[in-house]
Computed example of a mutant assay.
Amino acid sequence: MSPAGFAPRQDSDWPDMVADMRAGFAGQLNVYRIMAHHPALLRAWGDLRTHIVQNTALGPQRAEVVILRLAHRLDCAYEWNQHVVRALAAGLDKGRIASLRGSLAQMTAPDATLAGAVDALVDHKRLAPAQLDDVVAMVGKTGALDLMATVGMYMTLGFILNTAPPDLEPAIAQALAQQAPELAV
Rank of each mutant, 00 (worst) to 15 (best):
G24E: 10
F25G: 06
A26R: 00
G27S: 10
Q28S: 15
Q28A: 15
L29W: 07
L29F: 13
N30A: 13
Y32T: 03
Y32A: 00
Y32R: 09
I34N: 00
A36C: 06
H37Q: 10
A40S: 15
A40P: 05
A40L: 13
L41W: 11
L42R: 03
R43M: 13
A44E: 10
G46D: 09
D47V: 14
R49E: 12
H51S: 07
H51R: 15
H51A: 10
Q54R: 15
N55M: 12
N55A: 14
T56I: 10
A57S: 15
P60D: 10
Q61F: 05
Q61I: 10
R62D: 06
A63Q: 06
E64Q: 14
V66K: 00
I67M: 03
I67Y: 05
R69Y: 06
L70D: 02
R73I: 08
L74Y: 00
A77I: 06
N81C: 06
Q82S: 14
Q82L: 11
H83N: 01
H83I: 04
V85A: 06
V85P: 03
L88S: 03
A89R: 11
A89L: 05
A89V: 07
A89S: 12
D93Q: 12
K94N: 09
K94T: 15
K94W: 06
G95L: 14
I97H: 04
I97C: 08
I97Y: 07
S99E: 05
